[in-house]
Computed example of a mutant assay.
Amino acid sequence: MDALVPRPRTVVAPGAVHVPGWLDADARRALVEACRDWAAGPVPMRHTRLPRGGVMSVRTVCLGWHWKPYAYSRTADDVNGARVAPFPDWLAEWGRRALADAYRDPAAGDGYAPDTALINFYGAGARMGMHQDRDERSGAPVVSLTVGDACVFRFGNTETRGRPYTDVQLESGDLFVFGGPARLAYHGVPKVLPGTGDPAAGLHSGRLNLTMRVTGLTEP
């Protein structure tokens, strides 16, 4: 999977960078196929139940470590008890290249070793409320990839779920990286834009979002 191309970028906030069209058609298609395999198991894609009883509208499957609100484990004890699929080396390499391209620094990805990925599928009406990615013990950047329907991605501040925030339209193939002072910024997806899918990638409707992270965890 060597079909990645650098593109112009927009710095949304210090440490937060949007790179449109980072994945070309071959890479988008390969990612969709991989996500379909991961969604089939060993832990299937599911709607995550929150501690207070709510159910997330997105469907999620994890790699490397399983995320259950609000912690990581190697086994999906809230689903079927199986160990999650391993985090692939090729995806880690994508993560390192993503940081180098986003930050325009060939050394930005040096030492970046993501060990988990959350793959969210946004079907009709799905959205994501404002939240922080703060269950990791590492401050390494989050690398986010979008395939399929475009969405409104709301990127906020580190103090509150409200303003100030910036709305960015993420389209199929886009990369978004946030690290450094933006690592704990609140962010969410208030709206997915139906009818903007990516048939060339094999995804006619819905949005796939893969975020890779460094947990900072070790085996128990």
Rank of each mutant, 00 (worst) to 15 (best):
R7V: 04
N120H: 09
V11A: 03
L4I: 08
T218R: 10
H131M: 07
L210T: 05
V142M: 04
A100N: 02
L145M: 06
G216T: 12
L210I: 00
H131W: 01
R127W: 13
E33G: 09
P199Y: 03
H131G: 03
V147G: 02
A140Q: 14
F155L: 12
S57G: 12
M212N: 06
D77Y: 14
G173C: 12
D174Y: 08
H131R: 11
E219P: 13
R28Q: 11
D174E: 10
P164I: 10
G123E: 02
D167L: 03
A30M: 14
G109I: 00
R59K: 13
V61M: 15
G179F: 05
P181M: 05
D24H: 13
L145W: 07
V147I: 00
H18T: 00
V61R: 11
V168N: 08
G197P: 01
G156M: 13
G21S: 04
G162D: 03
V5A: 06
A13W: 04
V55C: 11
V177A: 01
W65R: 08
D135V: 03
G179Q: 10
R137D: 15
A201N: 08
P220R: 14
F155M: 04
D77P: 07
V32W: 08
D174I: 10
Y165S: 06
W38K: 05
L50W: 15
A201V: 05
W22T: 00
V19P: 02
E136I: 10
L217Q: 06
A30I: 10
G173A: 06
T48V: 15
L4A: 04
Y70R: 10
T160V: 09
P51V: 09
A39S: 11
L63G: 09
Q169M: 13
D89E: 10
G197Y: 11
D110H: 06
T146G: 08
V61L: 14
R59C: 14
F155T: 03
T48I: 12
G95H: 00
A126R: 05
F176D: 01
A30Y: 13
A71N: 15
T166V: 14
A185K: 04
D149L: 04
R36H: 02
V143P: 01
L170T: 01
D133H: 05
G197C: 08
T218D: 12
E219W: 14
T10Y: 13
P190W: 11
L50V: 15
A124N: 02
Y103P: 01
R49C: 01
L91Y: 14
